[in-house]
């Protein structure tokens, strides 16, 4: 049985269609990522799945129960971490946790097996008020609170937004650890580089799923040669190369600009020569593997 089944869900707010006819399944024990930019409809979909909102049409089941009629069951078995840090700022770590333990009818000590590793990291600060914690610690506390009743399914809405790179990596390590204990996880993120940490992902754009596969499967489908190119000034370089014949797309990505060509047999030498004729910059170019972001941009521009 799938942990989460989403079947043709749509939801509008006035004229804005936030979610358009989305369908996908999250399998039992799977770490599933909803990947997409801000405003793609990820949060709306998650709110429907955690029974905070009702869909306009379509249906969804969580742990076999309908999100509208079976909301009471769902509320008992999911752990939910909202996008905004939703803990009491004026209560300490310990007090926040015992409050959430209490409303779920459990005790902190009983849940150490599941969240013990995470809790150990924030335990030295347990008397500190939540409002005074760093972003990474807040996130760990929020995760502890979401896990406190040993949920079967964990739903996390952009848990790594606003958190530094090291804490982000740590956080994904924690998710892998939680997954090993048999908990199904649905996580949304705007960071494409995090997609590789998921078992399967759905790329979401303007309320629709534009791709649904394992991260490797999505990358495998990328059928065009792609190069990383770097000059003295990437901004000018992109300006100068954007009218190159056979160019499919060109965009900055970190230190390099990514350059996608139509011709499968495109060599990097040809591009380098073209670029050398256009510009006086010192140019480095090499063929690279496409990543999720490249796939996403390809689908947005040509899909």
């Amino acid at each position: 049985m799938a942990a989460i089944e989403v079947h043709q869900i749509s939801k509008s707010f006035g004229e804005t269609k936030a979610v358009k006819d989305m369908s996908f399944n999250v399998n039992d024990g799977e770490l599933f990522g909803l990947i997409g930019p801000d405003g793609a409809g990820k949060t709306t979909l998650i709110k429907i799945l955690v029974t905070l909102q009702k869909p306009d049409s379509g249906s969804a089941k969580v742990d076999g129960q309908d999100v509208v009629s079976g909301y009471h069951h769902i509320r008992n078995i999911i752990g939910y971490m909202p996008g905004k840090f939703a803990l009491y700022q004026d209560l300490s770590i310990e007090e926040n946790m015992s409050f959430f333990a209490d409303i779920f009818g459990t005790k902190i000590e009983e849940q150490m097996e599941l969240m013990g590793d995470i809790y150990k990291q924030i335990e030295p600060f347990k008397k500190r008020k939540a409002g005074q914690l760093s972003g990474g610690m807040k996130q760990k506390l929020a995760l502890c609170c979401a896990l406190i009743h040993k949920p079967k399914i964990l739903v996390l809405d952009e848990p790594t937004t606003g958190v530094d790179a090291v804490s982000r990596r740590e956080f994904w390590d924690m998710l892998s650890h939680i997954k090993k204990q048999g908990i199904s996880i649905l996580v949304s993120t705007p960071y494409m580089d995090e997609a590789a940490r998921c078992d399967r992902i759905a790329l979401v754009q303007e309320g629709s799923i534009i791709a649904l596969d394992t991260p490797k499967g999505i990358i495998k489908d990328f059928a065009h040669p792609i190069f990383g190119i770097k000059g003295d000034n990437n901004y000018h370089l992109i300006e100068e190369l954007k009218n190159m014949p056979g160019l499919r797309s060109l965009y900055p990505s970190g230190e390099y600009a990514h350059l996608v060509m139509d011709d499968k047999n495109q060599s990097s030498e040809e591009i380098k020569n073209y670029a050398a004729a256009k510009t006086h910059q010192k140019i480095e170019i090499e063929p690279i593997e496409a990543d999720i972001e490249d796939c996403f941009i390809e689908m947005m521009q040509h899909g």
């Binding site: 509320r75 939910y80 939703a86 409303i103 779920f104």
Partner: peptide
């Protein structure tokens, strides 16, 4: 405002 109402809302309370 804090967002805790959401969390409380979908608790078994």
């Amino acid at each position: 405002e804090l967002g805790t109402m959401e969390v409380i809302s979908i608790s078994p309370l």
